[in-house]
């Protein structure tokens, strides 16, 4: 006797998008970073720094929009430390990225001392006028806040940038072979630094979406592993923007769906429901990336390798 009538599909889709957006933002940023040949494992640290920067500025200014900008800026600044260490001082990317996560978690806890238990200004859904009144579709497509649309636009923009623009081609070239790109006269370090900062800004937006919309409040350590999920999604999506979108929405969607199924009293074992977001996301992305040779091609060849101009 499964009574699932209490699950409202429209509300479900809305909460699915809210749940997926933080991971989506962080993952699309990391995709650009990795496409440029840099592996930044500090996504979690940048997200949480963005979460607190955005929260503080939104509370102080009363404007969530300014808060989101501050989040992007703060996390981009943090990521530039990573950029300086790995690109200029040639430190190990894996170790530096892990250190960035630890640093971000500590820094955000320190910054957030006076902001525990405070309410953030509300980010309300955009008003699309008549469009929002279309039954069902209107509620599903036109009832979200602007960050949801921005995150979707970022996916489309990243895809178009990598596929159709000269700058995107240069970025990919740097990620495939930094020596060849350097020989052609491209500024490898500058391009990578910009990519890292873009990745930081996106992760910061994702973090701020947690503290300003999804939860919405500041709690220490509130990202609770979302950054690692984003990193995993980039790899499983074989560095393709639309697959990142699919992965993030699958993961976020199934997380929300399984909680709703539990709340509605579905007679599916809870153990299965709880592992389903991980299993289904991995399965789907692995299956669509099943062609090994093509999957290997989409991984940037110089991912994680240090670059030194004189070598």
């Amino acid at each position: 006797m499964m009574d699932l009538s209490s699950i409202n599909p429209v509300v479900l889709v809305a909460s699915l998008m809210v749940a997926a957006t933080p991971i989506l933002l962080a993952a699309i940023g990391e995709l650009i970073v990795e496409k440029s040949g840099v592996l930044n494992l500090g996504v979690e640290g940048m997200m949480i720094t963005g979460a607190i920067c955005g929260f503080i500025i939104a509370v102080e200014s009363g404007s969530p929009v300014i808060g989101f900008f501050a989040a992007a800026l703060g996390a981009a600044l943090l990521s530039s430390i990573f950029g300086f260490l790995t690109l200029v001082l040639l430190s190990n990317q894996v170790a530096t990225g892990l250190a960035l996560t630890l640093f971000g978690l500590g820094l955000s806890a320190l910054m957030g001392q006076g902001y525990i238990g405070i309410k953030a200004p509300t980010t309300s859904p955009l008003n699309f006028g008549v469009l929002g009144d279309i039954p069902l579709i209107g509620r599903i497509l036109f009832s979200h806040d602007w960050m949801v649309y921005l995150s979707l636009a970022l996916i489309a923009g990243t895809w178009a940038f990598l596929k159709f623009t000269r700058a995107g081609l240069v970025l990919r070239a740097v990620g495939e072979s930094h020596d060849a790109a350097h020989a052609l006269g491209y500024k490898v370090i500058r391009i990578r630094l910009l990519a890292i900062m873009f990745g930081g800004a996106c992760a910061g937006l994702g973090g701020a979406y947690l503290s300003l919309v999804r939860v919405p409040q500041w709690t220490e350590g509130m990202t609770a592993g979302a950054g690692w999920i984003a990193l995993a999604i980039v790899v499983f999506a074989s560095w393709k923007p639309w697959r990142v979108l699919l992965g993030a929405y699958l993961f976020g969607g199934i997380t929300v769906l399984q909680l709703n199924l539990q709340a509605a009293g579905a007679t599916i074992p809870v153990e299965l429901l709880s592992m389903s977001p991980y299993i289904i996301t991995i399965l789907v992305l692995v299956i669509i990336s099943a062609d090994r040779r093509r999957a290997a091609l989409s991984a940037p060849a110089d991912l994680g390798k240090p670059f030194h101009a004189t070598s």
Binding site: L210, R214, T219, A224, T255, L259
Partner: peptide, 9 residues
């Protein structure tokens, strides 16, 4: 402890 998941729940 996972604020996002607790909020979703």
């Amino acid at each position: 402890f996972d604020p996002a998941k607790e909020a979703d729940a």
